[in-house]
Design a protein around this nucleic acid. Structure first.
Lengths: 135, 135
DNA sequence: CTATGAGCTAGACCTCGGTCTAGGTCAAGG
DNA sequence: CCTTGACCTAGACCGAGGTCTAGCTCATAG
């Protein structure tokens, strides 16, 4: 089984992150497998690194701070024996995500109410649905 | 009908924002009704302002930038005649929120998969479900 | 009369997450 | 040989969104 050998530019392309950001993430300890270097010091990523980074992108998109991802990465890097801690971390983030979902649903309901009322307003010429009371 | 007269501290209490943040929001133009002042220059908020701010909080929680909220506030402040623009702005944000919901769902699926696999791992002692391949 | 507490302004400061620059190394191609 | 382009490091810079400080004005309570 031969591992893919990817340059930072290729990884940037497939993860959607910039090369700058990839180097930042590495400095911040987000990578779960230490990055090897070729003979002239350039980073060599594996396909597995790309998968891990794709997960990082999702974690970021769901509001996980870099420090937390770094924490998780360290646990994974440290190998077996801390699975309970990883699970705990994931569950904590899960709670966070579920809370965000609820908030977004809530906001969506507000928007939909306003949109509906503006549509009615525009169609029928009824009063401004979001007006400050005269004072 | 008598309007409520609220101090900045009371508004902070009921919106969950700090007084600092309330003043920031005002400077940034997020308020849809200009804030009056009492005889000695202190801000006097109405119940309507609090409602508006509660909406702002939801917008913020769903990722709307301050500048966009300020834009919406300006439209509302300017009064009738720009309802179509407000509607457009709300619809744009709605799209944004829906996209975020999808991303969060996606992330939730990832987390749930990992959580499930860690639980199985911990219960049964099977292999580390998130291990870097040996290399 | 004075001390306390809430509010005021202007502006400094902070964190987070990127983004970009300067100045250098290296390999391949014309 | 020389240019081009991708990569390297270290570190500056940036925008967003808050948060806090200094120094002031008031009103109320003791």
């Amino acid at each position: 089984m031969s591992y893919e050998q990817l340059s930072i530019g290729q990884v940037a392309e497939r993860t959607g992150l910039s090369v700058h950001t990839l180097r930042l993430y590495e400095r911040e300890g987000l990578l779960a497998g230490e990055v090897r270097r070729d003979s002239s010091g350039r980073r060599v990523y594996s396909g597995w690194d790309v998968e891990w980074l794709a997960n990082c992108v999702k974690f970021r998109a769901s509001g996980m701070p870099l420090a937390t991802i770094a924490h998780l990465a360290r646990l994974v890097r440290d190998g077996s024996g801390n699975e309970a801690e990883r699970l705990e971390l994931l569950r904590a983030h899960r709670h966070h995500v579920v809370a965000q979902l609820a908030q977004l649903q809530d906001c969506l309901a507000l928007i939909d109410a306003k949109v509906t009322s503006y549509e009615a307003h525009l169609a029928a010429g009824v009063g401004d649905p979001w007006v400050s009371p005269a004072r």
